[in-house]
């Protein structure tokens, strides 16, 4: 197994090298790499413009994921409640939200919702709401599985020392559940990061929107979108590494 992974890594490196050389070769040929060439003044301006979208993409994703985790947790707790009405709320919410394509949700929240509530949301908050709600149904299912994986004995022990419901969740159940669902939560974070590109359709100045705008003025789709791909790639590799580190750290002090 280990030998095989080494093998794959070597091949991946080889393919990567060839790709980079091909791209560099492209620079010297009559491709349009000048539009993002950091040694040229105009290329620099363009690159800074593209990278400037990073802060919106990150802000949008982080705020969305925080809200989504919160909604997801509450919906999961409702689903595990003894109360039949609350369980119904969970079922309807999860099934309903999961059925809406994210792009449709974004359009509906930005163009439709203001007419309904008479309140004009900016693109940022419209994007946050759509991303958070769209993701929260998945978070709810992840949390539900995680909470259910904590044994009945733990709940009984907590009850035997008279801990309240919320204390039991906070000190006993969630800390154990979150360790187990961390990989799934990491996945969801990556998913939200990528899906934040859809918010470009309502004019949010994040990475994808900026790339689109630059392509319209510069007519160099391959070069500009290649930079866009790299931006997402780097961002997501960083998140993945972060999640993996967190997992290792939590596993180290679980000692089960």
């Amino acid at each position: 197994m280990a030998v095989r992974q080494d093998d794959i890594a070597r091949r991946a490196r080889w393919v990567g090298t060839v790709l980079v050389l091909a791209l560099l070769g492209g620079c010297s040929a009559n491709w349009g790499w000048y539009v993002v060439d950091p040694t040229k003044a105009s290329g620099q301006t363009n690159l800074l413009f593209l990278i400037g979208g990073l802060k919106y993409t990150i802000l949008l994703s982080v705020v969305s994921i925080l809200i989504s985790v919160l909604i997801g947790l509450l919906i999961a707790l409702a689903g595990l409640s003894a109360n039949r009405f609350l369980r119904g709320v969970n079922r309807v919410y999860v099934e309903f939200v999961r059925a809406i394509p994210l792009l449709v949700l974004i359009l509906w929240v930005y163009y439709g919702l203001p007419e309904l509530v008479g309140l004009n949301l900016g693109v940022f908050w419209a994007g946050v709401i759509a991303l958070a709600v769209g993701d929260s149904a998945f978070q709810a299912e992840i949390f539900r599985a995680g909470i259910q994986s904590v044994g009945r004995g733990q709940l009984e022990a907590a009850r035997s020392i008279s801990l309240s419901y919320w204390d039991t969740m906070r000190y006993i159940v969630l800390p154990q559940a979150i360790r187990r669902i961390l990989p799934a939560l990491g996945n969801q974070f990556v998913y939200v990061l990528k899906m934040s590109s859809l918010v470009s359709v309502i004019g949010m100045q994040e990475l994808t929107r900026r790339a689109n705008e630059l392509v319209v003025t510069e007519y160099r789709a391959l070069e500009i979108y290649s930079v866009l791909v790299l931006e997402y790639l780097v961002l997501i590799l960083i998140v993945s590494a972060g999640v993996r580190r967190l997992e290792r750290r939590m596993r180290a002090d679980e000692r089960e």
Partner: peptide
């Protein structure tokens, strides 16, 4: 239930907390 302590066949200690924290959680929170 506050007047009643219970010991289980399977111990049911909280695996993610130290022994001390297992013991102090109830007295502090309840």
């Amino acid at each position: 239930r506050r007047e009643v302590g219970m010991v289980f066949q399977q111990f049911n200690l909280f695996p993610h907390l130290t022994v001390l924290r297992n013991l102090t959680l109830g007295p502090m929170r309840v």
